[in-house]
Every structure is written in structure tokens, then in C-alpha cells.
Amino acid sequence: MSSIIQVKHLSKEFRDIKAVNDLSFEVPAGQVYGFLGQNGAGKSTTIRMLLTLITPTAGSIEIFGMELRHHRKEILRQTGAMIEKPDLYKYLTALENLRIFALMSGMKVTEKQLMDQLAMVGLAERAKSKVRTFSQGMKQRLGIAVALVHDPRLIILDEPTNGLDPQGIADIRKLIWHLSRDLGKTLMVSSHLLGEMELIADNMLIIDKGKKIVEGKKEALLNPDTVQVEIMTDDKDKAIAVIRETNWKDCLAASANGTVLLEMQKEDIPQLNRTLAERGINIFSLRPKHTLEDFFLSLTKN
């Protein structure tokens, strides 16, 4: 499978803040790539670097196999994006906004093509209305239409479900599926909501504080052979000491507030339970964290 985006050792520093720190990842063609991180994790900075809005401090970006710095126009011509809020010209109509950005992308479009595009996001009836009169959800959909209007190969959507009601979120989700499954587009979708990502993404990248935490297929991340186990005991230090004596000593991940975190094979969990009990450690709870949500939170805690 070829990569549409290839990012290597990407960094961006704003004065003394490292917004993105040595980030590398690849976005495979024809898939929905979930880009996950808490607010302020560096998602937007990364996306802005992909769109040449921000110059990286270090690292390289290749899109469609071309170096972004040297083939900016060719790459951007085939890229559509919605960055953060879907801000458009409020004093213009939906149709006018769409036409402007189609033309800016170097595309000659007919009125019909534009109307089809609006119909796809469910705004055909409001084509001639000023954007000023649009609800947040309508703006969001128009923003996506703008990202799609020039028929790009790569679509980057930054927090596309932000500020939407459940119906709106469902609509966007369907649209993303449609673009990916039916039209074969490559999408990179960022979000700080894991639940959303679980539903739409094929692959996922999780970052925190500008650094990559994990990257991989969703299934692998959701049902890993290795799970995280959170153990709550009456004596954390003793439990750690016991574990250090066993084969699981390399699995110790972290410990806090009376809990111990281990990364280990799922089938080893009963054995661990027994071992700790035999050594007189009272276990209050032993919880494998197998949902992505837990995984994400555990990863990005601290």
C-alpha cells in the first residue's frame, strides 16, 4: 500500500514551545486516517504544516511522493482542507464561496458541478443564501464542500464534527464514509474525540505534546494482544517489588495513586493475579484497559 503522506521527523518550535516534536507518520492511500490528540497536542500545527501555512522548524513532508516545499502548488491542487472552524466569506452566498475556492484551486467549474457539490452536503436549497445566515452545522458542511469542490485526492479535515449536534455528527460521518468507501479518497481527519475516531478511522495516529504516542491500525489498537492492566492494591510498592521479581518486570508501565499499570499479554492476567495473591497482596481491582478510550486516556495522562 502506497503512502499519500509521509512525514519524517517533523518539528515546529514557536519561540521556546515545541508544538510538534520529531513527529513521523505515514498516511496510506484510500483510507481514513484518524489523527487523535487532546486540544493543544499539536494536531493543528501539524495539519497547518501539511498545508504550508506554517513552516516546519525541522523534518520533511512528502505528499503524493513529492517534497512539499518544492512541489507546493502541485500538491495543494490535489488537496482539499477544512482547517478548524469552517470560516468562509459571510457576506457571500454558499454558491459564491464555493466558486471562489474552486477557482482558487485552479479549477474551472460549472454552475451544475457546484450545485452537485452543495447537494452532496445537503445545502442545495440554501445555495443562494448568504453564509451569514447559516447555522454552525451548515457552515461545517459548506466548509467540507469547499474542501471537496476541486475534487482533490487528499482531504484533510481538522475537527470536522466540532460544535455539531448528534445528527450533524452522524451526517459528517456518513459523508466521510462516502468519500472514502465510494470515491476512494484519502482522508486525514483530526479529532480530540476518540469515540468519533473509533467509528470512522481505518488507521490512527495519537499524539500528545507534539510527540507521537502510537500509530497503527484501529483494530490493532482496539484489540491488542498486549493490554494494559491497571491493578489497585493495598500496597502498591510491595506489588511493584513482587512484579520486579517475576517475568513481567519489563511490563511495568507506570504507577500512581495506589495503582500499578502493566502492559502484558492478555492470557497472562490470571497468572499475575494468582502470583500477587500468593504473595499476600490484597487486590481491590484488576482491570484490563482494552477500550481505545482508556488506552488513549492512559497514554495522554500526565
Binding site: 498545508l51 488537496t79 482547517i83 466569506y89 485552479g106
Partner: peptide, 14 residues
């Protein structure tokens, strides 16, 4: 201010 600049600058225009 309107938020359209990021869209403009990410278009294939130098």
C-alpha cells in the same frame, strides 16, 4: 480575522 486566510494560503497559489 474572518478565518479565510488559512484557506486562501492553502490553495495552489504562491
Amino acid at each position: 480575522n474572518m478565518g479565510t486566510l488559512r484557506l486562501l494560503v492553502s490553495k495552489p497559489v504562491s
